[in-house]
Design a binder for these strands. Sequence first.
DNA 1: CAAACCATGTTGACAGCGTGAACTTCGTGT
DNA 2: ACACGAAGTTCACGCTGTCAACATGGTTTG
Lengths: 223, 223
Amino acid sequence: MTGSDPKKRPPYHHGDLHHALVQAGTELAREGGPSAIVLREAARRVGVSPNAAYRHFSALPELIEAVAFDALSALARSMEAEQAKCRPTGDAGRDATDRLCAVGRGYVRFALSEPGLFAVAFSPGKIAGDVSVHHSSDERHGVGDSGLMPDELLEQALDGMLAAGVLDAADRNTATLNAWAAVHGLSELLLGPMAGQTPTAQDALIDAFLDLVGRGLITRRTT
Amino acid sequence: MTGSDPKKRPPYHHGDLHHALVQAGTELAREGGPSAIVLREAARRVGVSPNAAYRHFSALPELIEAVAFDALSALARSMEAEQAKCRPTGDAGRDATDRLCAVGRGYVRFALSEPGLFAVAFSPGKIAGDVSVHHSSDERHGVGDSGLMPDELLEQALDGMLAAGVLDAADRNTATLNAWAAVHGLSELLLGPMAGQTPTAQDALIDAFLDLVGRGLITRRTT
DNA sequence: CAAACCATGTTGACAGCGTGAACTTCGTGT
DNA sequence: ACACGAAGTTCACGCTGTCAACATGGTTTG
């Protein structure tokens, strides 16, 4: 939706203001998070009158949500990039688990390297505005290499573990929430209350954490 | 710090503006999260000129942080309340694990019942302002029944598990991050991307999740 | 080919926000 | 009794989001 497909003839005056504004908004978000997305400043950077934005967004929250959507796509891309690094071992179960860890690593890495975008990605539906425009189905196509969104990548990785026999079918449903919560929580904690670690220490923490989560998810009917 | 001890003679004109402003700010935060806490409105509700606030806070972020501190205290109180419900079984290990789950349940329950306050509690250090005034040591005393903050309650619960022998010493350090991340992530997910469940379904989800985390943390040297 | 059309962008205006500077009020210590 | 200084007020400024009215210029149509 943000990706301007070459088929579309350029809009009348500017070129593609919608896209340009989202891009400017993204830049602002990178620098200062959701609250730094300022309509007038975005318009200024694009070189256009403030009110021109209202031809493309009903109000500021809609711009923010467009930026959030792009941020989610970027997050997905980070996850895919990390997954692409996985080298197959002989063991299918281990490979599936590795891919899950990679998904998680891509998630946390993105949160730490682009905290502003990460914050904006999950800012809609956070009270005080509550736009919550559910783009379901076709609207959801991201711009990642596979066109999948973060949650879809997670489900895919978990399905892989299920197929490889390292995740029990009975645990499959709760596994989504479990894995997502762990990784999301780790991101927020590393960004907020536990910020200030050296990158090296962070990486070690992340790896240890992901390893623990991965092993924790693996079917253990030992109870 | 927010609690006005009765010994202190009341300030000159208003009575205790500092406290009153924090209270008004808290009310605003409850209704609309961090961005809803607006200096002029808080002053209006207290019945005072906007600039009067500047005698007690250097700027808006400082007010927000005071509200955040109170919100953390409220979170701690919720965790303590849930812990107080724990009835001892015979098993010390089980009791310790129960108390950890109670801590988590109190955390998530507070997040869901007071989303605005929960959001504001973790909003400092979130880019774009970045006050990050570290109140260490004595400043940290909350107003909970035990005067402990959320992270201290967690550590305490984990220490209990360690003492009861259900948590291995080698896992003790990572356990903090692990448990906190899981519970915090669950809260955020239930509040954002996975919002809209019925309270009953939420409770079931929470219980299942906490049970899983609890079991996951318990020493399993089966690898 | 010209004229009407409508999407796009501009100008002007308004209320509300955070914040600074100067001024007023009033309890308190000398 | 009086001056001092903390607490609160008033006025002012620049910034924001948003509305209403207007200008512009491809596109479409008679």
